[in-house]
Simulated assay, not measured.
Amino acid sequence: HGTSISREGLDAILAATAFCEPDDIGVFFIDDGVLNLINHQQPELIQQKDFIRTFKLLDLYDVEQRFICTESLQKFKLE
Rank of each mutant, 00 (worst) to 15 (best):
E71V: 06
L35S: 03
E21M: 13
N39V: 07
Q42I: 11
N39F: 01
V63Q: 02
I13N: 01
L60E: 11
L37Q: 05
E8H: 11
Q42S: 14
Q47N: 14
F19H: 14
Q42L: 11
L58D: 01
L73E: 04
D62I: 00
G26Y: 13
N39A: 11
L14N: 04
V34L: 01
D50K: 10
N36G: 09
E64I: 04
D11L: 08
P22T: 12
N39L: 06
Q41Y: 08
K49E: 15
Q42E: 14
E71F: 08
I68R: 02
F67S: 08
D31G: 06
F29T: 04
I25C: 07
F55T: 05
E8P: 00
L58V: 07
V34H: 01
T17H: 04
Q65T: 15
K75W: 12
D50E: 06
T54I: 07
F55W: 11
E79A: 13
E21F: 10
D23Y: 13
H40G: 11
H1S: 13
K49Y: 07
I38Y: 01
I25K: 03
H40M: 05
K77Y: 10
V27Y: 03
Q47F: 09
D23S: 15
Q42D: 10
H1F: 07
A12R: 10
F19V: 14
D62C: 04
A15L: 14
Y61S: 03
L73H: 00
L60I: 11
F29N: 05
D50Y: 03
L58Q: 02
L60F: 06
T3E: 09
G9Y: 00
L10T: 01
Q42W: 03
L37M: 06
T70Q: 09
F19P: 02
D11A: 11
S6C: 12
F29G: 06
D31I: 09
I5F: 10
D31V: 09
D23H: 13
I25Q: 05
I68M: 02
